[in-house]
Amino acid sequence: MQYIRNVATLKLDEQRCTGCGICVKVCPHEVFEIIKGKARIKDIDDCMECGACSNNCEFEAIYVKSGVGCAVGIINGILRGTEPSCDCGCDGGKSCC
């Protein structure tokens, strides 16, 4: 399953990439592959911006603006003027997003 096209903020800096392959291991959507010792983005539209890759890239070769992909969280953010967040502050939030 794929979500909306051409929106993911994922960026890969090939200069910094050492081809260690951790991004391939942590990505739950098979976004990356290693070709000739460098990571490559296979299909950016598979990216859900969870941030696992950039969080685990010790060479800082990956950028992604990660966050909750959740309509309730985004509405909360708009209402409170903050970053999107699933916590409504009353009951610990909807813990599944």
Binding site: T9, H29, M48, E49, V68, C70, V72, G73, I74
Partner: peptide
């Protein structure tokens, strides 16, 4: 249905933002 984006395993924040801008 839009609420379910929070429970799904493949929606990106950028995508939900883009969608909610017109959907809401």
């Amino acid at each position: 249905a839009a609420n379910f984006t929070g429970s799904s395993t493949y929606t990106s924040q950028s995508g939900v933002m883009k969608e909610m801008k017109w959907a809401l």
